[in-house]
Design a protein around this nucleic acid. Structure first.
Length: 263
DNA sequence: AAGACAGTCAACCGCAATACA
DNA sequence: GTGTATTGCGGTTGACTGTCT
């Protein structure tokens, strides 16, 4: 015996909501709220709809403050960044985009951003087991650890790139970038990542990248750089002042790699 | 003009989590 | 502690629209 349906499908209307139904629901919500019970709301409001349908319609479309229309580049960047940290936890991502719903973000990802990501082509970074070996010590538990050049990974610093997609602008808008750029891993020289690599080192690397290089690499580069020095995540340094470190901390706590072997 | 196809997005489905008796 | 109702969520579907042939 299966689960009882939430409503009698034969007696409720399905499909697209009419303007009249929207008006009824909107008016009822303004006057009474959901009353803490969506299942009985359509009866109280006089709607021939399933309670779940009412809830969805309200949350995704009728609720005040909902943004309709295209996503901005900035929102895209935020979504890319959050997706790399959270995966398809759309409600988590949407909660950080005022006026956007999980359904909106999910649709946008599936229809636009996923293609954008795929069209970026193969990453410039190599990805191999060898690269997981830092200074002769294997770092485990680090998903998508990628670098084009293992020698930038020394025993005191490393860079974690997510998969290739548009970058968060604050990561690489240093001097020398004439356009909105991307983190360009293979333009980074090992000398830029000396022992105890820090934001200044990173800045030097970024600013040494020509616009042409940035452009050529833009479709094959990475978005987020997570830094660690001596096994201590760079959260204290706040090297990317506009970045939401709470997100990163959350991600970090779930995926913390084994750094015990690093010196 | 019309049919095929692709893109978009609202809505539905079913499962897991949570609340509550 | 257990069972049931409800909510929240992500995956998927399908209607609609625009573009191409």
């Amino acid at each position: 015996m299966g689960r009882a349906p939430c409503c009698d499908k034969a007696s409720v209307k399905r499909g697209t909501w009419s303007p009249e139904e929207d008006a009824i629901l909107r008016r009822y919500m303004h006057e009474h709220g959901s009353g803490g019970n969506w299942i009985t709301l359509p009866i109280r409001a006089g709607l021939k709809r399933c309670g779940k349908s009412c809830r969805l319609r309200w949350l995704n479309y009728l609720r005040p403050g909902i943004k309709h229309g295209g996503f901005t580049e900035e929102e895209d960047d935020v979504i890319f960044g959050l997706y790399s940290a959270f995966g398809s936890r759309w409600s988590e991502i949407a909660s950080r985009l005022p006026g956007r719903t999980d359904n909106d973000v999910k649709n946008h990802w599936n229809t636009k951003l996923k293609k954008k990501l795929l069209s970026a082509g193969p990453t410039a970074c190599l990805k191999s087991d060898k690269n997981q070996n830092l200074g002769g010590r294997v770092v485990s538990g680090f998903p998508k650890l990628e670098t084009h050049d293992e020698h930038i990974l020394d025993s005191t610093s490393y860079c974690f790139y997510t998969s290739s997609f548009s970058a968060l602008p604050q990561l690489h808008t240093g001097p020398g970038h004439q356009e909105r750029g991307f983190l360009a891993p293979n333009a980074v020289e090992s000398s830029d990542f000396g022992a105890g690599g820090n934001k200044n080192n990173f800045g030097a690397a970024a600013s040494s990248t020509s616009p042409q290089e940035v452009s050529s690499l833009s479709t094959a580069s990475s978005s987020l750089a997570f830094w660690a020095n001596d096994g201590v995540y760079a959260e204290d340094e706040q090297i990317f002042p506009d970045f939401d470190y709470d997100i990163l901390n959350s991600f970090w706590s779930r995926t913390k790699p084994d750094l015990s072997g690093l010196t």
